[in-house]
Simulated assay, not measured.
Amino acid sequence: MNTIPPFDLSDQYKLIGEEINQAVLGVLASGRYIGGAIVETFEQQLADYVGVSECVACNSGTDALYLALRALKIGAGDEVITTPFTFVATGETASAVGATPVFVDIDPQTFNLDLRQIEAAITPRTKAIIPVHLFGQPVDMTRLMAIAHAHRLTVIEDCAQATGAEWAGQKVGSIGQIGCFSFYPTKNLGACGDGGAVTTNDPKIAATLRMLRDHGRRSGYYHEEFGVNSRLDAIQAAILRIKLRYLDGWNDQRRVIADRYHQLLKSIPSVVIPQETPNGRSVWNQYTVRIVEDSSQSESGKLLRDRVRTQLQSKGVTSMVYYPLPLHLQPIYKSLGYQPGQLPVSDRAAHEVLSLPMFPELSIEQQDQVVYGLKDCLG
């Protein structure tokens, strides 16, 4: 019995490995490893793909968020509304610029921000909202932008898990004032290392982003602000240029796999399948179900989800938990004073979510092994 990983890049490399190798060798032969035409071409190609005029590449999705906040001059004394059910970088970057993250609970169907609760969280100190298109599922951006416009707030889209996702026919990263992307290898568009990018239609913001990513300078050794070293290297840009050509096809394959998961899992007791919103087009970076426990399944000291995960591993299926502890309950945010139960949907999701193997090359046989293994665990 072969073990199925949560994500596997080996088949993808077999498909495009020769193209990747030639691109990397071309960069090495050029002698230009930082910046240059390859990085600039990738930036323009990604801008065109997302549907914006400007793209500024950087060295991670985390830096994309940090640079976006810096470019908008968000800092000490400001508040940023976001979700607690996300990777730490979403809240961490707000804290890094001196702002205070304000966590709003999530919708139980999509795992995204519950937009019904946002307005109650807005104060005179609120400067921005960071919606996270979690697991590749787009936030209702029509409704969110209406709220932001009414309160004169900036929207920074966290698109780290959602490159290629759409809301009402528009790519995420082109709807808010700024979009932030990650090219971590497990993302839909993944590099062979770290990488990130910021998208916008505002050339002034783009110019500030380019300055900040390069030690706060526009040229030479004259520094206007305290910046950072966050430049995407040319090898990663060359790799991403190739992968961008395949992205839509890979996202379509993910959608086919997600549809099959829907059909195979919908009748399994204790499994709640994820829902796609009518105006949204998810790219299924993760296929995350809920393992719902009732009193007859309770076992002292261990969640049903965790017991199922252990049993799945014994059946050759590796699953993941994104995320076992929401940000508002993390030790780093103890000073904010959030208590268990204050954001109940996020708290419950952390106890129930289980991400099943999801990658474009997942075979029918592998998917059957996942599904039948899950059925056995819950039978």
Rank of each mutant, 00 (worst) to 15 (best):
P274M: 05
A120W: 08
F135T: 07
I235D: 07
Q263Y: 02
V256G: 06
F87G: 15
N251H: 05
A37R: 15
I364E: 10
G51E: 12
V172L: 01
S346D: 04
I20E: 01
V321E: 02
A168L: 12
D252T: 13
V353M: 01
R305I: 03
M145P: 07
Q366D: 14
F7K: 08
E293N: 04
A349E: 05
A99V: 01
L72R: 14
L374S: 02
N112H: 08
Y33W: 12
Y184A: 12
R143F: 03
L67A: 06
S10E: 14
N279M: 05
A23R: 01
Q311I: 04
I130F: 11
D11K: 00
P278W: 06
V97S: 10
S30V: 00
L312W: 09
L329G: 08
Y66I: 00
T3G: 02
M141W: 10
A197G: 04
A191K: 01
G249W: 13
I129A: 15
R254C: 02
G190N: 10
D114L: 04
R245W: 03
L134K: 11
G91T: 06
P131I: 06
G176P: 00
K73N: 15
M358R: 01
D306A: 12
G196L: 03
S295G: 13
I239M: 06
R307W: 10
I178A: 11
A237N: 11
N251G: 03
A206Q: 08
T110A: 09
S53M: 00
L354H: 02
T93M: 15
W284T: 12
E157N: 10
